[in-house]
Write a protein that binds this DNA or RNA. Sequence first.
DNA 1: CACCTATGTTAGCCTTGTCTAACTTTTAGG
DNA 2: CCTAAAAGTTAGACAAGGCTAACATAGGTG
Lengths: 153, 153
Amino acid sequence: MPTHGRVTPDATDRGAKAQAEGFATVRQAHESEMAEDYVELIAELIELQGEARPVDIAERLGVKPPTVTKNISRLKDAGLVSRERYRAIFLTPAGQKLAEACRRRHRIVVAFLLSLGIDEDTAERDAEGIEHHVSENTLEAFERATSRFEKKC
Amino acid sequence: MPTHGRVTPDATDRGAKAQAEGFATVRQAHESEMAEDYVELIAELIELQGEARPVDIAERLGVKPPTVTKNISRLKDAGLVSRERYRAIFLTPAGQKLAEACRRRHRIVVAFLLSLGIDEDTAERDAEGIEHHVSENTLEAFERATSRFEKKC
DNA sequence: CACCTATGTTAGCCTTGTCTAACTTTTAGG
DNA sequence: CCTAAAAGTTAGACAAGGCTAACATAGGTG
């Protein structure tokens, strides 16, 4: 018997273990967020301007240039970007693949929020945070729901 | 005229400044995540077992006890919990208020995901990450959409 | 009531991601 | 082609949030 005032889990308690796994998932997502945000932005900049330079990345991320230098070198170690000192940044095949997945996810989340009637600024802002925590499962549900809403259902 | 191969922002570019603000918002959300997760869980444990003890918090968060000790002392500094050494943890009025807001948000996000046809485990998991990045605006849209779906619209 | 085990804390380390200050390289203009 | 400004890097600091190892306390039980 439990020592304290502990009771059998009731209906609202999905169990400590499941909950712990959920939090672990969130912590893991946080670890890949930096990489995802960078490659997504790099892909965007290459599309927009032909190349991604640290100064632009810093401006759009709202961080200072040294932060970008340090993080880019981490991405290089991770095999996501290729780059030589003082030159523009490019994505490796692995980086391109990740960027494409992130951009797809981002597009789906934004489109879904817009279909809910949320204004564009809010949709973009919230999507930036939400996208890293959406499972493939949920993403597909978003896609289905978006078209349902678009059909004025 | 821009120096490089830079072009006038096209339709898909919402501007560097807006984008930077979005990322700043996400970074700010990350700073309050720890506090929100803890107070939410503490409230849950108090409801479930009458008190919140570090060992249970650690188990449910999936972290080790020393991590809980350190973070609880941060929350105490922030005025969200009250507690004496070696005793159970309780929420201050400020902590209770925050916990209530978090639990409401959590409930809304979960209910919304469920209404989309997502299974319970996935809904709980994704909600854990998503809830910290949902603006009040979006939260209200979720509420509206949930009832729309429940009406089998 | 003394002690063993659970629980809790302290100390110290690590990684991530941010910053400022100072230095280096590139590059555009005269 | 030389030089100043813009861009990039390095060095070093710091806070957050994890961890392990070792120590401290509280409380139920023999």
